[in-house]
């Protein structure tokens, strides 16, 4: 394998690792907190919101937005590290 290819596959591995991490959070806040564990979380009340209901109708969406911007930052850094930035 040439150096160029080695670099490319190292970059790709790190990228995929980020994806796993971010998508686990994506899954946890929506399918986890908003659906599968909704009942249990609903026993906790914050202000007028039951927590599970809040995740399903508000919280998950805020986390989604944050996830994409975190991804943008992580990838911009990664691009720089491997010299793929432009």
């Amino acid at each position: 394998m040439s150096d160029k290819q080695k670099k490319a596959s190292a970059y790709w591995r790190e990228n995929v690792r980020y994806l796993f991490l971010l998508l686990s959070i994506w899954f946890a806040v929506s399918y986890g907190a908003g659906i599968l564990f909704k009942e249990a979380l609903d026993t906790i009340q914050i202000g007028g919101f039951k927590l599970g209901f809040w995740f399903a109708q508000q919280g998950a969406i805020y986390v989604f937005v944050i996830l994409i911007f975190v991804y943008v930052r992580l990838m911009n850094k990664l691009d720089k590290k491997y010299g793929y930035n432009e």
Binding site: L19, L22, L23, W26, S30, G34, K38, F53, A56, Q57, A60, I61, F64, L67, I68, Y71
Partner: peptide, 21 residues
């Protein structure tokens, strides 16, 4: 009510997939 959450999460969560994948 709560059942409507499928649209809220579904139509926004798709953008995470779109952006990452």
């Amino acid at each position: 009510g709560y059942d409507g959450s499928v649209y809220l999460m579904g139509w926004t969560g798709g953008y995470v997939l779109l952006a990452l994948l």
